[in-house]
Each structure stands twice: as structure tokens, then as C-alpha cells.
């Protein structure tokens, strides 16, 4: 008899504890962030889509060395360039196939001239596949302060400055 009472007490306690947990939660403020209305600030290092930011003078730094194209595991980047008279390469087209990109950031690490950055743009869905093939040299995206310092492990980032929110419009 005592055993039955004890075990039923255990059952009641076991169930009651669980009920107490959920009831307690009922009166606490939920942790939900209602996404399109409310947005979280992305950490500085977050990798969104690739951009070719402009310097203050409005130029990109790409020298068509093709390091990024070689580093990319998926063939996301296809660079077209023309060689001038002085044997210097000039970028003609920086083709970025967004549909293939896995946002691994290897291209940015590979870039020896700090020409590439991964922005915080992440709402990249499009109704048309063609809109996912981007030509980065056509976009005039200013250099964001949060991108200072480069992304390669050789140079460490300065302390997180500001929100780190990239103000990048989706291209295409």
C-alpha cells in the first residue's frame, strides 16, 4: 500500500513539475522576434552576398587576378578581363552566380587586394533565375566601415563598430 502511495505520489510530482514549467513560461515574455517587422542586428562577421565595394573615389579594387575565381569551390565567380597595352588587366565583367554561392567566404579570404567583401544582404530570393546572375562591377556599393580590416585571417578585425548592418540593395 505504501509503495503504491509512494509511486503515485512520484507520478503526481513528475507530472506537476512539468505542468509548472509550462505554466511558468505562460506568463513570461516570449523571446520571439517578429522577423520582417523587427530585425536583429547581424554580427560584423556575418556572411551575406558578395559585393565589390567602391573606394571613396568610386573605384573598385579588383585587378582581375582570378584568385577568387580559383578559390571558389562551386564556380560561382567568372571574371572576364581585357589586357591593356601595358600588360595590365582591366576588369570587364565580374559575374557572380548567386544561385551557386554557399557563402563560405573563401573568395574574400583569397583576395590579395581587399577588393571583395561579403555584405549582410541576405534576403536574396528572386522570382526569376536570371536575377540571380549578378554583375558586381555594375553595382556602386560604397565601402562600409564595418568591412575595414579585411576578412582574411592574417589581419584581425578591429572591435565591432556600429551596427554592422550593411545597406546593400539587392542587385539584378
Amino acid at each position: 500500500m505504501r509503495r503504491i502511495l509512494f509511486s503515485s505520489w512520484q507520478v503526481v510530482m513528475g507530472l506537476g513539475q512539468g505542468l509548472a514549467v509550462t505554466l511558468g513560461q505562460l506568463f513570461r515574455k516570449p523571446c520571439t522576434v517578429q522577423y520582417p517587422k523587427e530585425r536583429l542586428i547581424w554580427p560584423q562577421r556575418s556572411r551575406g552576398r558578395l559585393v565589390l565595394p567602391r573606394t571613396r573615389e568610386g573605384r573598385h579594387k579588383c585587378t582581375s587576378c582570378l584568385m577568387c575565381q580559383r578559390a571558389c569551390p562551386n564556380g560561382t565567380i567568372a571574371i572576364t578581363f581585357k589586357t591593356g597595352d601595358d600588360n595590365k588587366r582591366a576588369l570587364v565583367d565580374f559575374l557572380y552566380a548567386l544561385e551557386r554561392c554557399t557563402f563560405c567566404g573563401l573568395c574574400v579570404e583569397a583576395c590579395p587586394f581587399d577588393a571583395l567583401r561579403m555584405s549582410h544582404a541576405h534576403e536574396l530570393a528572386a522570382y526569376d533565375r536570371n536575377r540571380l546572375t549578378l554583375h558586381l562591377q555594375e553595382e556602386k556599393i560604397p565601402f562600409h566601415p564595418a568591412w575595414r580590416g579585411g576578412l582574411s585571417y592574417r589581419a584581425e578585425l578591429p572591435p565591432a563598430a556600429g551596427s554592422g548592418q550593411a545597406h546593400v540593395k539587392e542587385g539584378g
Binding site: 554580427p43 556575418s46 584581425e156
Partner: peptide, 21 residues
Amino acid sequence: DMLCGQRMTFNYCRIGGVARD
């Protein structure tokens, strides 16, 4: 996200170390 820049597919380890401090 703060450490590696990605939430699930980190790409954090590198041959010889890690990508970011």
C-alpha cells in the same frame, strides 16, 4: 554567427588552424 560569420555552415576550421580569432 559572431565567431565564424555563419550560423550552421561555419567554414571555421582551416588546415593549420582556424579562420578567425
